[in-house]
């Protein structure tokens, strides 16, 4: 059975994602959110840092973009002192 692909998921709207820890172990997120559609859209970006088993920190960004608009999005201090091997994932929904 093919995996479901809910309409609310708009992964392609987020480009240039950067999510990494600084020297102090503080994770920050940034990316470019673009509305390629023909109508305004309210986006929600969920960002989490952690290992595969648990979340060390998370953040949410809500942004409404007009049709064809694009913007840079940022989230500071998403996580602190995440376990070794943690990764950062962002999910964009509308």
């Amino acid at each position: 059975m093919a995996a479901p692909s809910p309409d609310a998921l708009v992964t392609d709207a987020l480009k240039n994602v950067q999510c990494a820890a600084d020297a102090n172990g503080t994770w920050s997120f940034s990316g470019t959110l673009t509305n390629t559609g023909t109508a305004a859209v309210k986006y929600t970006i969920a960002i989490a840092v952690g290992t595969t088993s648990s979340v060390a920190g998370h953040s949410m960004i809500e942004k409404e973009l007009a049709a064809g608009a694009s913007t840079e999005v940022h989230a500071a201090e998403v996580a602190h002192a995440a376990p070794a091997g943690s990764t950062c994932e962002a999910v964009v929904s509308k």
């Binding site: 995996a3 809910p6 998921l9 929600t44 969920a46 989490a48 979340v55 998370h58 994932e89």
Partner: peptide, 23 residues
């Protein structure tokens, strides 16, 4: 909820992230 607070799990996030835990 539209927010994601504390130790609550964002099921949508875990369902839709690349690893799709909760798909």
């Amino acid at each position: 909820s539209s927010s994601w607070v504390g130790y609550d799990e964002n099921m949508w996030y875990f369902a839709t992230r690349r690893q799709h835990d909760y798909r």
